[in-house]
Design a protein around this nucleic acid. Structure first.
Length: 277
DNA sequence: AAAACACCCTGCCTGC
DNA sequence: TGCAGGCAGGGTGTTT
C-alpha cells in the first residue's frame, strides 16, 4: 500500500525525469476512479496538452504534478494512489497493462502512466491543486511539519485509540496501516491505548514515527504486492518490518509471539509484552 | 464534536 | 477442478 515512504520514493524517482518534460498528449480510460467519480478529462486536457511538467511534489500520500500550460499559466494534477495505484515512467513501446487509466505521452517515446486495478486512487486536474479540499483537510507531515510538542497537544485532545488516531490523516498526514503498526511497536505503545492517555509518551512516539518513516524511505518503500516505484522496481522495506504481517512469529525484542487484532477496521500487529495498554 | 462504520473496487487466497 | 466467499485497506460520506 502506498503510504508516505512509498509516495516519497515515487516522487523522488519521477522528479528528475519528469520536470521539464513537455506533454505531447493525454489519454484516459474513461472509467470512474475514487467514489465512482469520473475523471474530468476535459480539464485534464486543458491543463496538460501541449504544456510541460514543472514540478513533482509530495503532500502526505498525495503526489502533486505541477504543469505550465501552453500559454504560460499554471495548473496541476493531484494524484492519489489509493490501495493499488501505480505511477510509472515507461517506454511508450511497452504494452499498456490492464487497468491503465491515465497516460501522459511525453517526447522521446516515453509515457507517464497511472495504473490502478482497484480504482481506489484518484487523478484530479485543477488550476490550483494546492487549494483542493483534499489537501486542506490534511494535518501536519510527520517528517517536516510536526514535533514532539505538537504531537503531544494533538494526543491530548483525542480520546480515540492510538491506532485510529495515527490513521487519521487530519491528525498526522502520511501514515497508513503498515507504518502505524511499526511505529507503535517501536514506541512500545499498544494500538488500543487511548490517545490522550499516551500524551506523556509523545516524545517516544514522535521519534518512533520519524524512525519508522526514515527507514521506510531509505529502503525505498515496502512492497507487499502492488507497490512499485517510478521505474517499476519493488521496495526493500518488507524485510525491515518488525511486526506488520508477522503474527505467529516471535518478537525480535522479547521473543513473545506477535499477535494480530482488528482496530478501526484494520489489522494491527503488535507484541503484547513490549506494547502495554 | 468526535468516533464508528459502510462503501467503492479487483485480485488473491481459502474452503467446499 | 471450479467457483463462491472472505479478505486486503486508501479515503470519503454517513450514521451514531
Amino acid at each position: 500500500m502506498p503510504e508516505l515512504p512509498e509516495v516519497e520514493t515515487i516522487v523522488r524517482g519521477l522528479r528528475p525525469r519528469l520536470v521539464g518534460a513537455s506533454i505531447v498528449n493525454v489519454w484516459s480510460s474513461g472509467l470512474p476512479l475514487r467514489l465512482a467519480r469520473p475523471l474530468d478529462f476535459g480539464a485534464l486536457e486543458g491543463i496538460c496538452r501541449a504544456g510541460r511538467f514543472v514540478g513533482v511534489r509530495r503532500r502526505a500520500k498525495y503526489i502533486l504534478l505541477d504543469v505550465e500550460r501552453q500559454g504560460g499559466s499554471r495548473g496541476g494534477v493531484l494524484v492519489h494512489l489509493g490501495m493499488s495505484g501505480r505511477l510509472r515512467l515507461v517506454a511508450a513501446s511497452e504494452p499498456r497493462e490492464k487497468h491503465t487509466h491515465v497516460v501522459w505521452a511525453l517526447p522521446a517515446g516515453r509515457e507517464l502512466r497511472f495504473v490502478d486495478p482497484r480504482r481506489f486512487g484518484n487523478v484530479q486536474p485543477a488550476d490550483n491543486i494546492d487549494e483542493l479540499p483534499e489537501l486542506a483537510r490534511l494535518g501536519p507531515d510527520p517528517l517536516t511539519e510536526l514535533d514532539a510538542a505538537g504531537l503531544e497537544a494533538s494526543l491530548a485532545s483525542s480520546r480515540a485509540p492510538l491506532k485510529a488516531f495515527l490513521l487519521d490523516q487530519s491528525r498526522i498526514a502520511g501514515l497508513g496501516n503498515i507504518y502505524v503498526s511499526e511505529a507503535l511497536f517501536r514506541a512500545g505503545l499498544h494500538p488500543a491505548r487511548q490517545a490522550s492517555r499516551a500524551r506523556r509518551h509523545a516524545g517516544r512516539l514522535f521519534e518512533a514515527i520519524q524512525e519508522t518513516l526514515t527507514i521506510g524511505i531509505a529502503n525505498r518503500g515496502t512492497t507487499l504486492r502492488d507497490y512499485v516505484d517510478a521505474e517499476g522496481g519493488a521496495g526493500d522495506n518488507f524485510t525491515a518490518l518488525l511486526v506488520y504481517g508477522r503474527d505467529g512469529k516471535p518478537c525480535g525484542v522479547c521473543g513473545q509471539v506477535i499477535r494480530r487484532r482488528v482496530d478501526a477496521g484494520r489489522s494491527s500487529f503488535y507484541c503484547a509484552r513490549c506494547q502495554k495498554r
